[in-house]
Amino acid sequence: MNLKNIGLYSALIGGITAIIGALEVIFVFTGTDSWIPADLFGGLALLVIAAVYLSGNGELISKQEEGLSFALTGTILTMVFGSLYTLIMGTDYLMYLLGEADEFLIITELRPEILLLVATLPLARYLIKREE
């Protein structure tokens, strides 16, 4: 991948992150019940991550190396949140086994953040390779 493609890919990820984040926040107020959870702080976190991705696009598309800052940090943040929600999925399952939670539904546990982590893997691979 060259810098321009990185820019396009991170714009795509950033865009999707922004939409999901906005929906998570909106659903808190509308009370919508959907696959995307209503989660104020979780949604705001996604909006921040999206802002990080999108801030680097200008530089990347004009092929400035500095733009990698934003793709790199965005990827790290997506990784952090994707891993966190994966851990929370495990936590919720344990609580369910312990009888502290009434139900355990994979559909509510498989948060969009986890899927974003998967989507960001190609970016992560490129950045790790570059580092070495």
Binding site: S55, E66, S69, F70, T73
Partner: peptide, 10 residues
């Protein structure tokens, strides 16, 4: 330009 510099920019 090191990786640290890149990260600090954000």
């Amino acid at each position: 330009l090191t990786t640290s510099d890149l990260l600090d920019r954000v």
